[in-house]
Design a binder for these strands. Structure first.
Lengths: 188, 188
DNA sequence: AAAACTAACTAACACTTGTTAGTTTTCCAA
DNA sequence: TTGGAAAACTAACAAGTGTTAGTTAGTTTT
């Protein structure tokens, strides 16, 4: 592991605990046993940490959803795959996910706008699956936007409670979520 | 409206946009046309804004869920009422909700612990409804903790996209969410 | 009229922030 | 063994932080 990766990783851990704004360069430095100024030999500046992380995860999610939409399945199968992909990415690095989900607001305006638009287009891909399901006659006539936001909220929230050492592993989480989203809580 | 309420309200608005840490006392002061120091004639300190808001909403939610559990209904009815209550509280003041949901981490440690324990016990009340539904034979055999977290994630997320001027009003949102949570996306 | 209270002000304190400049140490390849 | 890059250091900067002290004008109560 390079020094840069060590700094990045440590920074993400601190930022997950204390928040991005509340984590100072000096906090990061002392966590890796150096002076704040020395960090700049390895990273450009504080925002790079946030930018790198947010766009890294965005890319990973986008890659996954492209695969899903390229394969010609029915909506239920597509949704299942999309959920599986999302959970896999999100649970990979919980520290990074926290930044991605909560701290992107603190990106500089230009980066933030770029981020939002990529986020929106990811959402749209999800929404298209919901719409497809309706057109197939398989899904109920729900408001697609409403449904999509609700689904994504559930998926993202996993990063708050998932513990790698816990009993539920990403694959199982994805399956249960798919089940829950498709057919709900109630017996029929 | 008292000056104190004006300050509180303005502060919440700023904090929702920029985040709690990123909103300075000077920001708040200039938004209500006074000097930062003058704010201290009306509020104790910055943290009071956060504390007040977080515990205010906690109380509102608790009050609601007590009502639900006092009435002897079946689980489906209870869940419906609990969701309705939650959405009503959350959509009441979006600025406050944002602090409640996202910024409680920045409470001082003592307050934070208190907050977390009240949050946990609220969650437990929800979980009990899910368990009741299973015991009644009405709900599927899901992991109650998992289901509850998923449900609450969906409910809280409403505060991110709900717009008072929009076409969906709290009552309708609650109904659709209940529908979605109980019977999912798929036709049967 | 005197006293007390309210709510604003200016000025300042002590500290923290991200970052840069300039310098020294470390370490590896030739 | 030495030259040079990489990576650490110290010192400092300009700006911003929450908060306190002391003061003042205006209003309300005694």
């Amino acid at each position: 592991m390079t020094r840069r990766q060590e700094i990045m990783g440590t920074a993400l851990g601190l930022m997950r605990n204390k928040g991005y704004l509340n984590t100072s360069m000096r906090d990061i430095a002392s966590a890796v046993n150096m002076e704040a100024a020395s960090l700049y030999n390895h990273i450009k500046n504080k925002e790079e940490i946030l930018t790198n992380t947010c766009f890294g995860l965005a890319e990973a999610l986008e890659l996954g959803i492209k695969d899903v939409n390229d394969i010609y399945f029915n909506a239920a199968e597509k949704l299942k795959m999309a959920i599986h992909n999302h959970i896999t990415v999100i649970t990979q690095d919980l520290n990074a996910s926290h930044l991605f989900i909560h701290e992107w607001r603190h990106l500089s305006e230009a980066m933030r706008n770029q981020f939002i638009s990529r986020r929106d287009s990811y959402e749209k891909e999800f929404r298209d699956i919901v719409i497809l399901g309706f057109e197939e006659g398989e899904f109920k006539d729900v408001d697609p936007k409403f449904a999509t936001l609700t689904i994504l909220a559930s998926l993202n929230w996993v990063s708050e409670w998932y513990r790698p050492q816990g009993e539920m592993q990403p694959k199982e989480i994805a399956e249960k979520l798919t089940q829950f989203i498709l057919s709900g809580l109630q017996k029929n």
